[in-house]
């Protein structure tokens, strides 16, 4: 069950505050990294919502992220619609796609669920890739940034745009935490833990899974709109299955099913990528090795491990299972 523990609150506040502070010291490039980290925080949170808490390992979150980016880009660059309208429209599009995928896949579980989400994600990717009207593989440029001058903010300024991204990341966390604390969120965990029993208790499980996926889709699309605004450009590369895989890697490295962990994972990922890339061209190999090690050695992820240690110091009772183990067990019992 999700609990907004003090450890979680302190970590997420420190993380976001640290990012905001960093924008003051960092140059333009550093601020760009912060913006990237901020939207990856949102994407990772959205994925953790369904994967960590709902047991639905999605390989189409890259595509939903891309849908958010493209809807925003198309509306602002091709139809000259105000970003203030394009942003919510993109979020709604992500939610609708999420609801659709969630509803259609809700019968499947385990590897079949993963494969079905992969199929839907790739369908979107290929559609965009082949569609000249959407710029095909060249992508679309001329994306506008949101106008917040009525709040006295200049989004053309990279520092202020970074703050804006950080605030949205914070909001995304609050929304996700509120969902998970609610009766709905607890029920979602129940489904992850034992879907069959939830059904036997009278829960229309498929509807709940679809709604969870819709909420997650909305957040993933929000992340996409920030990415589109940052570079004012979108391309199919941001929505392929490797992007979905990367999002999953971030979630795992940070700690699946901890909500804060994936946020930490996103920031670590961006900065490590930056640092490691300075030292070696082979960043992917490092990620791969770390990923394998995390999965082989206990599955908890960076934050997950720390949280586990803190919880155990306080309450040396039960050998709490990491949610990855729980999810795997559930998948196996369904296989």
């Amino acid at each position: 069950m999700f609990q907004q523990t003090r450890t979680k609150t302190i970590t997420i506040v420190l993380l976001l505050a640290g990012m905001a502070l960093y924008t003051g010291f960092a140059g333009f490039y550093g601020r760009e990294l912060i913006i990237e980290a901020a939207y990856l925080v949102i994407l990772a949170i959205s994925l953790d919502l369904v994967a960590g808490y709902g047991g639905m390992i999605s390989l189409c979150h890259g595509a939903i992220f891309g849908i958010g980016a493209y809807v925003f880009a198309v509306l602002t660059s091709m139809y000259d619609i105000s970003p203030l309208i394009a942003l919510p429209a993109a979020i709604v599009a992500g939610a609708i796609f999420g609801l659709f995928v969630g509803a259609v896949t809700s019968k499947t579980s385990g590897i079949f669920f993963i494969m079905t989400t992969l199929a839907f994600g790739q369908m979107v990717y290929v559609y965009v890739f082949e569609n000249r009207a959407l710029g095909g593989d060249d992508g679309l440029s001329g994306v506008e940034r949101i106008d917040l001058s009525w709040l006295g903010l200049d989004m053309g300024n990279s520092m202020q745009f970074a703050w804006f991204s950080i605030v949205l990341a914070g909001l995304a966390y609050v929304v996700a935490a509120a969902v998970l604390r609610s009766g709905f969120g607890r029920t979602l965990v129940g489904i992850r833990s034992n879907e069959g029993r939830m059904r036997a208790l009278g829960l229309p499980v498929r509807r709940y899974k679809a709604v969870a996926f819709a909420i997650s889709g909305a957040l993933a699309a929000l992340a996409g709109t920030i990415a589109a605004q940052q570079t004012m450009f979108v391309s199919p590369q941001m929505m392929g299955w490797m992007m979905s895989g990367e999002a999953l890697v971030i979630v795992i490295l940070g700690g699946l099913g901890t909500l804060v962990g994936p946020a930490v994972g996103a920031v670590l990922f961006v900065f490590l990528q930056h640092e490691v890339s300075e030292l070696t061209r082979y960043w992917h190999m490092i990620v791969g090795i770390v990923l394998i090690l995390v999965v082989v050695l206990g599955n908890r992820g960076a934050y997950g491990q720390i949280e586990h240690m803190i919880m155990h110091r306080r309450r040396p009772v039960a050998p709490a299972k990491s949610s990855l183990e729980a999810a795997s067990e559930q998948e196996e019992s369904h296989a």
Partner: peptide, 23 residues
């Protein structure tokens, strides 16, 4: 280990192989 762990580990292997072959 369950399908998710397998997907993740072999996804990690893709990355490792990718760079090993580049090297």
């Amino acid at each position: 280990a369950g399908p998710m762990s397998q997907v993740l580990v072999t996804f990690g292997l893709i990355f490792v192989f990718l760079d090993l072959m580049r090297i």
